[in-house]
Amino acid sequence: MKADVLVRTDWNRKSRRITRHTIRRMLAHWQLYVILLPPLLYVIIFHYIPMYGIQLAFKQFQAMSGIGGSPWVGFKHFDQFFNSPSSWRIIRNTVGISLYSLAAGFAFPILLAVALNEVRGRFFKKTVQMVTYAPYFISTVVLVGMLMQILDPRIGVINQFITLFGGDPVNLMGKAAYFKSIYVWTTIWQGTGYSAVIYLAALSGVSKDLQEACVIDGASKLRRIWHVDLPAIRPTIVILLVLSFGNVMNVGYEMIFLMQNSLNLTTSEIISTYVYKVGLVNANFSFSTAIGLFNSVINLILLVAANYAAKKFTDSSLW
């Protein structure tokens, strides 16, 4: 009993000393807190206050009463969404486009980076790198504009090719069946060079000694890439995979929205564009917030799950 009290007072004294020390340290550097204040206010206002607004998903928004004063309606909006015939099509489109672009696009940047890493002609390497990186800087609007010009049934170069070989012009942007492929391959065209730079950065860290040892042991180039280069960039690959799983529900809605037309909407409507149309075009705030919340929660779950899997099966993870 006595010992216990002694220990406790000792602990109290120590903790008080730590607190005093901490306060003194905080006071000495009060200016750091002042500097941090504006960015902190920014995230609180522009990121955390909207999170408070998520309650709209469970309310019926009334303009007069505002977010706080609107009446609760429970899961009404979620019921409405999941019972509507279009909901599953929209979810299927979102996940489908996402997985398609993950499966089709994931290997290209790695291939490009590994190939560029093998090239010794500096001029050739620089030129290829610069040109493949350039599309990343083309804005979404311009990219879709280019796409529509090139795929145009009348003046587009693709259809001029088709007619050259005796085929009939096709309105490619108007065919629902082609939408996913057009979107995915356009993003691959735009993003491969950019993503390759990340892998190139990782490849530049591969140890030269290891490479030389392989050469002396008579390993072929292919074996060296397989046994030295790829393991070296494995953490980067894993982390980028985890990140893309965390973005499965966030397909590039800015681009898809621009590519949509009444003819391809059955395959091109995704959750984010639907949220925009329901919420801001039709001003159905609560319903739209509910769908948006569903989207964010699924995303968060996927990211956490992917990170958990990465941690379990490999030695690299986001956190």
Binding site: V43, P50, G53, I54, I67, S272, G292, S296
Partner: peptide, 15 residues
Amino acid sequence: FTMLFSGGLIPTFLL
């Protein structure tokens, strides 16, 4: 945390 989760389009618009 703001990278993992966000209020979404409508709450941000209302703000």
